[in-house]
Amino acid sequence: MSLSTRRLLKVITSLRGVHEAPPTMSPAEVSRESSCDALGPRLIPSKNQQGLPSHGLAGLNRQAQRKISEERMRVATLIVGTMTGKGRELVDLGERRDIGVLCVQETRWKGNNTRELGEGCKLYCSGTNMEGRNGVGIILSKQLKENLIVVNRKNDRIMSLKLGLGATIANVVCCAYAPQTGFTEKEKDTFWEEMDQVLGIIPARERVIIGGDLNSHLGISREGIESALRLGCG
């Protein structure tokens, strides 16, 4: 073979190598070569919710609600005249004003009971006296009722409940009308003695909130009534 023929074959061979297609890769090799994880196998979704609190997402919701309760608790008091037909109205009021605890007086409901009012709110009642007068109650929001520890019903004028708010224990004491004009001094003294009994059993480390109508002194001075207004005056 002449020199010119060998050179021609060498050029043809080099050109054929340029135009040859690269070797075909298997799907597994393509997956390994690719940097995009979209070409990889689809992950199987978790069904056992491992890593979440107990009861999964419901547990997360309860933790969030409990955190809100620890940071803020709005307390209000209201004389309702009667609870009959007032449940829906009071629930709407609590939602509009963001009220966690609503102390109500003059419920005029007999017996000590507990009632669901709607939207998760719950009413704890201490019933009326023999004449069907007075009666007090405390309404807890959907979030705060999960923090209830104990309810103490003293009589138709005084009740309290205890809430656990994280590291804080809050005692909400609800009293209806303290005996006003027209009641004897003995009746008034009895009321305040019973209030002292309820407050006296609460440990000093626990927070105390009083909601109600005390029919007490209003003004800018505490002179002469320091023992009656220990926490200030209206």
Rank of each mutant, 00 (worst) to 15 (best):
148 L>H: 01
7 R>K: 09
229 L>P: 04
146 E>L: 10
44 I>N: 10
187 E>N: 05
76 A>Y: 14
78 L>P: 00
16 R>L: 07
185 E>K: 03
198 V>E: 08
91 V>T: 02
194 E>F: 01
9 L>T: 00
175 C>P: 04
59 G>Y: 12
189 D>P: 02
100 G>K: 09
38 A>L: 15
120 G>Q: 02
226 E>H: 01
107 T>F: 15
95 E>P: 00
231 L>K: 14
37 D>S: 07
177 Y>S: 07
116 E>Y: 14
1 M>Q: 00
63 Q>T: 00
130 M>L: 11
165 L>Y: 00
134 N>R: 04
130 M>F: 09
30 V>S: 02
113 N>V: 11
104 V>D: 04
194 E>Q: 05
135 G>R: 08
210 I>E: 03
35 S>V: 12
103 C>G: 12
214 L>M: 10
156 D>M: 03
133 R>G: 06
225 I>E: 03
140 L>Q: 09
233 C>W: 11
128 T>A: 11
60 L>Q: 11
113 N>E: 12
230 R>S: 05
109 W>H: 15
206 E>G: 00
178 A>T: 04
55 H>F: 12
117 L>R: 06
74 R>W: 09
229 L>N: 10
117 L>W: 04
62 R>Q: 11
145 K>D: 03
20 E>N: 12
84 T>Q: 11
68 I>A: 11
91 V>R: 04
85 G>R: 04
121 C>H: 07
128 T>N: 06
220 I>G: 03
160 S>H: 03
